[in-house]
C-alpha cells in the first residue's frame, strides 16, 4: 500500500519533470534554429528591408537578387571552384595516406607498431607551432601553390586512430591467414580483402577530411598570396568579415550599393554553407560512429 502511494506521487513529480525536459529541449531547438532561419529569410529579402532591419523570421519583399549577384561574382565563383578542388584532391590524398599508415599499424605481425603509434600520437601533445611550420612550407617551395593547401594538413592523427581501430576490430586474423595461405602479399590483401571491407570507414574519414578542407581558411591565410588560389572561405572572410566588397558589387552605386552589400552577406553565407548542411543529415549517423570509435579507442 505504502509503495503504491509513493508511486502515484512519483508519477506526478515525473510529469512535471517531463514537462520541464520538453521545455528545455524546445529552448535548445529554438536557440539553434532562430539564427539559421533569420539568415535564410534575410537572404531572400530586398536589400532595403535587410538594411532597415525589417526582416525577422520571414522574407520581406521576396527577391533572389542577392543570389544573382553572388552567383555572378567571378571572385566568389573562383573561390567556389578552388574550394571544390582542394576538397576533392585533399580528401583523396588524405584518405590514401591515412590508410597507408593505419593498415600496417593494424597488422599484428608488423614490428614497431607500438613505437610508430606513439610517435604519431605525440604530435597531438606538442606541436612545432605556426612559425616553424611556415618555415618548412617555405623551404619546400610550397608557398603560394595549391599544394600548400593540401600537404601540411594531409594526415589527421584522429583519423589514423579511427581507421586503425576499425581495421583491427572488423577484420579477423583468420582472414589474413587464409589470404596468406593463398599466397597473397600484404598489398594484394589490402587491395582485394581489406579495402572492400573497410568501405564504411573510408567513407567516414573521407567526409571528415572533406568537410575540414571545405571549412578551413587558416592555411590559406598563412600560405597563399595570389587571389586566384584563394578558397571560398578566404574570399568569404574578405567580404564578410573585412567588409571589402566583391567585384560584382562595383556595378551598384551609393546607398543602393551599401544595401546590396548587406544583403549579399546573407546570400553568401547560405551559398557557402548549404552544400555541407544538405549532405549532413545523410552522413550524421556515420560521423557520430566515427567520432565514437575514436573516443573509445583513443
Amino acid at each position: 500500500m505504502v509503495k503504491q502511494g509513493r508511486k502515484v506521487k512519483n508519477t506526478g513529480i515525473d510529469r512535471v519533470f517531463m514537462f520541464a525536459v520538453y521545455a528545455l529541449l524546445l529552448t535548445f531547438l529554438a536557440v539553434v534554429l532562430l539564427p539559421l532561419i533569420y539568415i535564410l529569410s534575410s537572404s531572400f529579402s530586398s536589400p532595403n528591408a535587410v538594411s532597415s532591419g525589417r526582416v525577422w523570421l520571414w522574407p520581406v519583399d521576396f527577391t533572389i537578387r542577392g543570389y544573382e549577384v553572388v552567383l555572378s561574382d567571378p571572385q566568389i565563383l573562383g573561390g567556389f571552384a578552388n574550394s571544390l578542388f582542394y576538397t576533392v584532391v585533399g580528401a583523396l590524398v588524405s584518405v590514401t595516406l591515412t590508410i597507408a599508415i593505419a593498415y600496417p599499424l593494424s597488422r599484428k605481425g608488423f614490428y614497431g607498431r607500438g613505437f610508430i603509434t606513439s610517435i604519431i600520437v605525440y604530435t597531438m601533445l606538442f606541436a612545432g607551432g605556426i612559425i616553424p611550420t611556415y618555415l618548412v612550407v617555405q623551404s619546400l617551395g610550397l608557398l603560394d601553390t595549391r599544394w600548400a593547401m593540401i600537404l601540411p594538413q594531409a594526415i589527421g592523427v584522429w583519423q589514423v586512430i579511427i581507421a586503425r581501430a576499425y581495421l583491427r576490430n572488423s577484420i579477423p586474423d583468420s582472414l589474413y591467414e587464409a589470404a596468406e595461405l593463398d599466397g597473397a602479399g600484404d598489398l594484394r590483401i589490402l587491395w582485394s580483402v581489406v579495402l572492400p571491407l573497410a568501405k564504411p570507414m573510408i567513407a567516414v574519414i573521407a567526409l571528415m577530411y572533406a568537410i575540414m578542407q571545405w571549412n578551413s581558411y587558416f592555411d590559406a591565410l598563412l600560405y597563399l598570396k595570389t587571389d586566384d588560389l584563394y578558397p571560398l572561405q578566404l574570399v568569404l572572410r574578405n567580404i564578410l568579415v573585412l567588409n571589402s566588397p566583391g567585384n560584382g558589387m562595383d556595378a551598384a552605386a551609393g546607398i543602393e550599393r551599401r544595401h546590396l552589400a548587406d544583403l549579399l552577406k546573407y546570400s553568401l553565407i547560405v551559398v557557402s554553407t548549404a552544400p555541407v548542411l544538405l549532405i549532413y543529415p545523410f552522413v550524421a549517423r556515420h560521423f557520430t560512429k566515427g567520432a565514437l570509435i575514436g573516443a573509445v579507442k583513443g
Binding site: 535548445f28 531547438l29 539553434v32 534554429l33 539559421l36 568537410i211 571545405w214 571549412n215 578551413s216 581558411y217 572561405q233 578566404l234 568569404l236 572572410r237 564578410l240 568579415v241 553565407i269 557557402s272 554553407t273 555541407v276 548542411l277 549532413y280 550524421a284
Partner: peptide, 12 residues
C-alpha cells in the same frame, strides 16, 4: 538540428 552547426565553418 543541434548537431548541424558543428559543420558550419568558423568564417561563417
Amino acid at each position: 538540428v543541434t548537431y548541424a552547426p558543428y559543420f558550419i565553418s568558423t568564417v561563417v
